[in-house]
Structure formats: C-alpha cells, structure tokens
Write a protein that binds this DNA or RNA. Structure first.
Lengths: 223, 223
DNA sequence: CACGCTTGCGTTCATACTGTCCGCGGTCGG
DNA sequence: CCGACCGCGGACAGTATGAACGCAAGCGTG
C-alpha cells in the first residue's frame, strides 16, 4: 500500500484528490495539508510514500516546498498536480525530481494512469540490489512515465493477456513464445505480442536460450 | 552553447569526459572538478548549465552533492555518469531530478545520445511561456529520454551483450572466448563475436595467454 | 635451425527462430 | 444491412547462433 499526502489549499479540490486516491487500488491517502508548513509537519511525523503537490500554496510555492523536502532528505516522491502552466515551473519541478506533472483540471483516469505508472516504478525498485546494465536502468526510469499501463495498447485483449500471464506464471521453467502460444492455444505471433508487452512493463524477464543450432530462441520467465 | 562541469575524481576518466564533451556540437566543458567541494566552488562563480556527475567522490557522495546543489537553488541540471549500479542510488538520483543516468563505462555514442536528448529538452524549454496543455508538458518531459541509443551492430543482441559484459566483469581473472562462452551458456564463436566487439570499443583488453602447448589463447579482461 | 605437432583462432555457411507486414474473420455501432 | 474497427495468425524476409574447417602460432625434438 502506497501512502499519499495531498497538499492542496483549496478544500474542495483537496477532498476530490483524496477521494481519487482512495478509489485507486494500492493507494491510501494518509493525510491532507493545506499549506507548505502543514505538509512539512506531516512529513516529519508520518511515513509518506508520495506527495500530491499543488504549486500554488498560500505560504510558499510548490517548488520551494519540494526543495525543503529534498533538503530534509525525506525518502518521498512528489507528483506535481497543479494548474501552473509556465514552462519554467515545469522545468524546476523536473529538476527537483517529480515523478510526474499533471495539469489541473484533470479527470480521474488521468490521475489513475499516473499513479499506476508510479506503482510500476516502485515495484521495479522494490526488488533492490543492483541493475544488470544500462538497459535495466533505462527501463526503471522509463516506468515513471504514464505509458498505456491502465488502458491496454490497441490490438490486445484482457482475456488473452490473462491467459499468457497464467501460462508463464504456472510454468516452472521459462517459456518460449512458441511454447506459450501452444499452452494458451494461440499462435506464436500472438503469444509473442503479449510476452513482449509483459517484458516491456517489467513483469517477465527475457533471455536467449542458446545451444540449438540456428538463431537462439527467446525465453520468458515470470518475475 | 551548453556549458558543462565535469565532476570526476579519477583524472583519466575526467579528461576523457571533458574530451567527449568538447567533441559534441553545442557543448563546451567549462570546468573539471575532482571533489564535491571543488564542484560547489565552481558553481558559485561560473555559470554552468549541466553537471556530469560521478557518484563516488572522495569527500562526499554524488547524491549528497546533488542535494547541496538543489539546496543552493542553482539553476543547473545534472547528468549522472557513474559506475554505481545499486537501484537505491538510481532511485535517489531520480528523486533529485537528474536528467539521465549513464552507467560507466560507456562509449562516446552513448554519452552523445544523452547530451543530444538533453539539448532537445532545453530547446523545448527555451521558448519559455506557458504550456498549451498536458500533451505539451508530456512532450517536454519525454524529451530528456535519449532517442534510440541501442543501435547495436547487426547480428548482435542486447541480451547476449549484457551477458558477456556481466561474465567478464564478474571474473577476477581474464577469460578466454571459450571460457566466456561456457559461462554464459553459448558457444565460443558467439562469445568471441561479442568480446571482439567490446575490445574494439575499448571496454575490454585483449592479450595472448602463453605457456600452454599449441597456439596461444587470447584472453579478455574488463577495464 | 628446421620441421612437425598441437591447440586454438578466425571465417564461412547452414539453420532455426525472430519480427513484421498484411489480410482474414468476428463484432459492434449506425 | 453495412461500414469501421479490432484482435489474430499466415507468410516471409531478416537475423543471431553454432558446426565445420583451414590456417596461424607457439613448443618440442632432432
């Protein structure tokens, strides 16, 4: 469960954000702060994973609050949620390591996509340890972007995806695309399409299977 | 012209980075710092746009230096260039708003891709003014990602290359092509193909291993 | 010093799997 | 009833790998 602090001076908006958070599986709103000072106070006494941060606060600017949070060394991420459209603000937010910048007003799906992308990013990091190489680091850092994580990419169906996931999870050894296709009763092409999607989103690992003569077969293993 | 400060304690690497910067159109190395203190001193008296930051510094850690830079409110971006592979370090770097995280050792094209992506990002922001909407903000923030840096020669795969690098890197002594093949579960021919590529790009050293009967065996050692 | 022996190098090519285009059939809204 | 869209798979060019093989380079023996 990812604990969220909502920082928003407008009570109506703050309550709306809180409700959105609660609606999203895996997230919980642990507190709401109307000012920067309140936010800092909450952060010192309550464990928070993510801050939903408005830029226009009565006592300070969101960027300034960001800076204080970093200076305090708090282990927390920030998602900017604001109506500030100035590119200088966007740049400053990026320079302070926000995991996203969502323009108000926004719809619930837009926020949910952001939150789910952040959850995926956290999941990648939760494993800890070392990155195997540059490609893994790129994959982790790309995960914060709200790809089409919620809405499936075109050409893919939920049912087939579930079947592929079930097949790879159930197999004790890694499966090739052709093997997976056989298990789920589909073609190698379809199986591959879904396996690649899962590999991109970091849910399965991909490795070549050497030994046979000819081009090596790629095998996919559930994480 | 984008002014770059190279922060790197190893003189040979620092000089190499400086040379790489100078080779890249639109970039200029304005200074080189061997410690965190030197870097901060440079930043107070010289305008710098981008910091090429190593994580392992003699007097402090790169993340800590990052924090100080942000606390000082310097209007500067950071590109992490380091051999630190721990995911916690990657996460901390991301939280402090690095524009990229490049694992050492790297080839010039890899750095150039990063720098060009950063230049594109700056160009988007240089216009100033307000973003027209969420899509423009997304576009700006996506610009920091390098295009497709993959660009591996034909006939080679990213997975196998990573496996070979990992094998040679992990071995304390130098490995022959046959030994490397055995470690990664592939043939001598395949291992040799990748080892030669790494030797060409200067990432591994190549030397004959004399003494045995018959033709000497070539051995490869990680730099 | 010459010659052969031994062992691994380096190259070529067959091969099997990959990755992608494009058309098919089903489904849904108008 | 029809057009649009969507998910799927056949077909095919492209590509990463390893077996085979001739050659190169030290070492031992006379």
């Amino acid at each position: 469960m990812i604990g969220v602090l909502v920082v928003e001076d407008e009570p109506v908006a703050a309550e709306a954000h809180r409700a959105y958070i609660e609606r999203t599986a895996g997230f919980a709103a642990v507190a709401v702060a109307g000012t920067g000072a309140q936010a800092l106070a909450v952060l010192t006494r309550t464990p928070v994973d993510l801050v939903l941060l408005d830029m226009n606060l009565p006592d300070t600017h969101g960027i300034e609050l960001c800076r204080r949070i970093r200076a305090a060394g708090a282990d927390v991420d920030v998602l900017a949620v604001t109506s500030a459209r100035e590119l200088t603000t966007v740049r400053a937010a990026a320079a302070h390591g926000v995991v996203g910048y969502l323009l108000k007003p926004f719809t619930y799906p837009a926020l949910r996509d952001r939150l789910e992308a952040y959850a995926a990013y956290r999941a990648q990091l939760a494993r800890g340890g070392d990155a195997s190489g540059q490609s893994e680091i790129d994959r982790v850092l790309d995960a914060v972007r709200p790809a089409e994580s919620a809405a499936l990419p075109k050409g893919m169906s939920r049912e087939t995806l579930d079947a592929v996931v079930a097949a790879v999870r159930a197999a004790e050894r890694a499966l090739s695309a052709a093997e997976t296709g056989e298990v789920i009763g589909a073609s190698r092409i379809t199986a591959r399409r879904y396996l690649e999607y899962l590999a991109d989103t970091g849910l399965v690992d991909r490795a070549p299977r050497y030994g046979g003569t000819g081009r090596p077969e790629l095998e996919y293993r559930w994480r």
